[in-house]
């Protein structure tokens, strides 16, 4: 049977993959995708842990909440990336280390 441990492992693997993506990618979009993966891992954790709160389903609620937040964040992030691209013609984050505009 599938136990909580399996969920946690999957979630950890997802998180790790996301983290890896965030750290290594040279593309802001891909970093964003890595962030999404990490968020998804946390959502998976929330949902998996929600079995300990069957009465109020806090885990599920938080899961939903996070999904919405993630969507919003993606929208904002995409806008930032577009703006970034507009200004510096690149979306490589390692090249945009100057605080000057």
């Amino acid at each position: 049977m599938i136990t909580l441990q399996h969920f946690l492992l999957i979630s950890a693997a997802l998180f790790a993959l996301g983290l890896y993506g965030v750290i290594t990618r040279r593309n802001a979009i891909q970093i964003l995708m890595g962030i999404e993966l990490m968020i998804n891992a946390s959502i998976l954790n929330m949902v998996a842990f929600s079995k300990f709160d069957r009465a109020e389903n806090t885990g599920q609620v938080f899961g939903l909440f996070i999904i919405i937040l993630a969507a919003v964040a993606v929208a904002v992030a995409l806008v930032i990336i577009m703006n970034l691209y507009k200004r510096v013609q690149t979306i490589d984050p390692s090249k945009t280390k100057s605080l000057k505009g």
Binding site: L19, V22, I23, T24, S94, L99
Partner: peptide, 13 residues
Amino acid sequence: QNGKLQHYFVWML
């Protein structure tokens, strides 16, 4: 404090 996004990440981590 080199302004590289990903470095901050690593540090945070």
